[in-house]
Simulated assay, not measured.
Amino acid sequence: MTFAVICLLITVFSLWGLFRELKTKNFFAVGFAAVTVLVFGWFSVMSLFAYITRGGGAAIM
């Protein structure tokens, strides 16, 4: 659960940076922020989904 919350916080801060860099038209930083939002957003959503559905967040191997 902690991992999902940390990933969610990183996603929120990256969204903030994405919009801030869009305003300044720094497209190199926009690209990195967009990739960060996609990757960490995916991890946070899937971790929360696994925690809710499986009750512990552990992946089935």
Rank of each mutant, 00 (worst) to 15 (best):
S44Y: 07
Y51S: 06
F49Q: 08
G57K: 01
G41I: 05
C7F: 11
T53A: 02
L38R: 08
W42N: 12
F40L: 05
G31P: 01
G41Y: 03
T2N: 15
G55V: 01
W16F: 15
F32C: 07
N26W: 00
A4R: 11
G31D: 11
T24E: 15
T2L: 02
I6S: 04
L38Q: 09
F32N: 09
I60E: 05
I60F: 05
L9G: 09
G57Q: 00
C7P: 03
C7W: 10
F49V: 01
A29L: 08
F19P: 11
A34L: 03
A58M: 09
G41K: 06
V35P: 12
F49C: 02
W42L: 13
R20E: 10
A33L: 12
T53W: 03
L15E: 02
F40C: 06
T53D: 13
V39F: 15
K23A: 11
K23E: 06
T53H: 07
C7T: 10
A50Y: 15
G17N: 04
A50N: 14
F3L: 08
E21V: 09
T36H: 03
A50W: 11
S44W: 00
N26S: 04
T24C: 10
A50C: 11
A50T: 15
A33H: 04
W16H: 09
V35C: 15
T36V: 02
F13E: 11
G17I: 03
Y51L: 10
M46H: 02
V5A: 08
F13T: 07
M1G: 00
